[in-house]
Structure formats: C-alpha cells, structure tokens
Amino acid sequence: MKLEYKGQENVQASPEKVWKFIQDPQKVASCLPDLKSVEIKDDKNMVATVGVAVGPVRGTFKFNIELDPRPDENKVMVRIRGGGLGSAVDLTASADIKGQDNQTTLLDWQGQATVSGPAATVGGRVLDAQAKRLIETVFANMGQKMSEV
C-alpha cells in the first residue's frame, strides 16, 4: 500500500543550525522513536534498528537510511528502505528548509511510503493513521532537538 503524508514543523533555531543538524547522521538518527541501535556508514548513510509499536503490532525494524542534503535547493531528501515482521518499507521524504528569521526555521515536509508484506496486508486496516503518527513524531523530535542545539 502507498501512503502519503505531509506536515510542517516550526523549529526554534536558525537555518544554519538546522543545516548543521541535518548533516550529522548521528543526530538525525536520534530523532527516530525507540531507536535500538544505529550504525553510521558514512556522512550520508546509516543503518538503524528501531522498535515500532503500532497498536498491537510491535516489532523491530531495520532501516537503511540515506540522507541527501541539498543546500542549494534548501532541501533535504531522505530515503529509507528496510523492513521487519516479514514486511518491507520503502520511504522517500523531503523537507524544504525555509528560514523564517534568524531564530526560526520552517521544515515543510512531505513523504511517500510504500509498505509491502503482512504489515500492509494484515495490518493495513490500521496502518495508515499509525504510520502518520510515527512520521509526525520523527519530525516533531527533529524540531525539538534542533531547538535544543
């Protein structure tokens, strides 16, 4: 099944800080909820193991995450591929980074996820709302942590 999301996050930090944050995979990984472990491959790639709790669905997912910051376009692309519970998730997200002023930055994000396997076919009835919540949490965490820097 194909899922589409979008949202906005107002970050209490300057665009420079935000960019710095985004270019640090370790920091980005720390925004994933229930992160069990992360292995940084290089400055763009990492492998993260994440606990996912979607209602009765609870399990561990392993994701290959590729960060593709494009400062020229004021944009960051994220590609996530991985799976768990015999299921596969392919997600591409992008966030436009718009400096509002020196103190605030707007993350205008959107994402498309494709889910295959039992999580979609058995859990599909409840997946959409939950996945949305999950993604919102990631960006909310980002907003939070960027502000703290």
Binding site: M1, K2, T114, V115, S116, G117, P118, A120, T121, V122, G124
Partner: peptide, 14 residues
C-alpha cells in the same frame, strides 16, 4: 492487488 503488487486477500479476514 494494490499497485505495488501487495496481495490484498491473504487471509480469511480479507
């Protein structure tokens, strides 16, 4: 099936 080829009737609830 959906567009990704997910089988949408994989058990007796579907």
């Amino acid at each position: 099936f959906d567009e990704q080829g997910n089988h949408l009737a994989s058990n007796f609830t579907d």
